[in-house]
Design a binder for these strands. Sequence first.
RNA 1: UGGGGCGUGGUGCAAUGGCAGCACACCAGACUUUGGAUCUGUGGAUCUUGGUUCGAAUCCAGGCGCCCCAGCCA
Length: 570
Amino acid sequence: MNSGTRSRIPSFIREAVEEDLRTGRFNYVRTRLPPEPNGYLHIGHCKAFLIDYFTAQEFGGELYLRFDDTNPTKEETEFVEAIKEDAAWLGIRWVKETYASDYFDLLYEWAVKLVKMGLAYVDDQSQAELSASRGTLPKGTKWKETEPNIRPGVESPWRNRSVEENLDLLERMKNGEFPEGSRVLRAKIDMNHPNLLMRDPVMYRIMHVPHHRTGTKWHIYPTYDWSHGQNDAMEGITHSLCSEEYRIHRPLYEWFIEKLGVFPSRQIEFSRLNLTYAMMSKRKLRKLVEKGIVRGWDDPRLTTLRGLRRRGVPPEAIIEFVTNLGETKNDSWVDMAQFEAVIRDVLNKTALRRMAVLRPLKLVIDNYPDDLVEEMDALNNPEDPTAGTRKVPFSKVLYIEQDDFREVPSPKYYRLYPGNEVRLRYAYLVKCTHAVKDENGNVVEVHATYDPATRGGDAPDGRKVKATLHWVSAAHALPVEVRLYEQLFTVERPDDTEDLDSIINPNSLQVLYPSYAEASLSEAKVGDRFQFERVGYFCLDPDSTDGKLVFNRTVTLKDSWAKVEKSLQT
RNA sequence: UGGGGCGUGGUGCAAUGGCAGCACACCAGACUUUGGAUCUGUGGAUCUUGGUUCGAAUCCAGGCGCCCCAGCCA
């Protein structure tokens, strides 16, 4: 890959940072990851994480991990730990772990300062009143000529209270003297501002809710707008990188910096990652888990980091995928196939090869000695000479893939069929003689003869065969469970649908048992990734026991025969 | 539309006034002890209309389309 020569951060961000360093706006670089601990990390978060991480890294700067825990009704310590674990697994390193709640005291002081400057006030309006007085946007996408598309805001009757009264009220809000929803602290900006966010945004709301870190100390909690930017300033964050949806918050971000006269962090936006067939909404993800549609947050069909990890996706593939996308401000939808291509690419270079027969069919080599067992030499990874070789036992009775035999071959089928000779990988050339069927006419056993002169797979007379099959010796085979995954959803953009049941792919999980794997796999450890030759990439699942190994299919190999076969059918 | 953001092959990006290129996908072929991998090749794009310029994806003006904002969520 080209990570050595290409920058991993988007050019427009790098240019902005370079400019800031050149002009002296900053003489160092510090970025931050600002996850809210209210759910598990998914592939969509990786983009922001990696941009923050690599931006700091490229400029010799630092990365802070700051949990945005300003809403105690949604946040839990459990998620803090999970996020740290997942981010570390991805390969992200931070120099400092902080919390928005670390700054509640200082932040309150800053709020008092704004009140004293006459730039913030306590508003006694109800939530409904406040919402109504903010003005409106056109309903829906259609705008009626007869209506103004936007109504100006209306100033609150409490907007011009005295500083003393505001200070007193704010203090008492903090002390928990008022019920939830009865009052808020608002910045005094401009109720007719074209940007709705500037129409006296809420800074503090009353919540009599214990916080996962500050306990019952606080009865007011800051909003995102009144916390995030201030935390950036307090931590000396130079570049606050975030997704496009925060673009409209920037004027407010800058307003606070200006009025407070604090460290001038620069917010830069980029577009978020949209991946087809991936569910990114935390709310809907939770629903999938709670309804039991998936087995948990780490279900391999989910694009949560935990799910991807369990599925067998290496972190390097995620990094490669995300950084190769490049970055713009465009709304974009990345094809899942592109992600899978990167996964294959990484796994092809790193995964050890093994043989496993998913849907077994017995193959008997009639002219092979009954009790003979030969140890065949097999390459661990043809792409990596340093991966070495292993021994694979071969005997008279084998399993091959059901798909690898046809009693009546279709055109272009050149695997096993009566009269045809194929290669058993790393073993012998074998020629099919006949098939044995049960009373229903199903093939239950295939017979063949081998050519003893072809040990290893090459014929001394130079004759060629078109197919090479993977196989497992029946007497040595390990019965294993194999879980095959397809897209969880039947639609490309599952987040657009509210009725989840209507878009679930009923075939998203297929469990195969017994499949037969070569004996060497008994030494595999949970999380180990393999390529089952000619089939796909697999990862050993934590559900595995000593008696039964469980493998998850990460991705298939490209199957050009499937394509040919499909085109023959149509 | 009040404000903001964005428009380049099917998808994601590049080209920063000078031959529109790359990756994924697709199609065709070569090679092959994985019908894998690898390699080669074909097709296909600058939202639109005008303007500036020797020359425009790029600069200017208008139009069109998509996305975001009316949480005391982040």
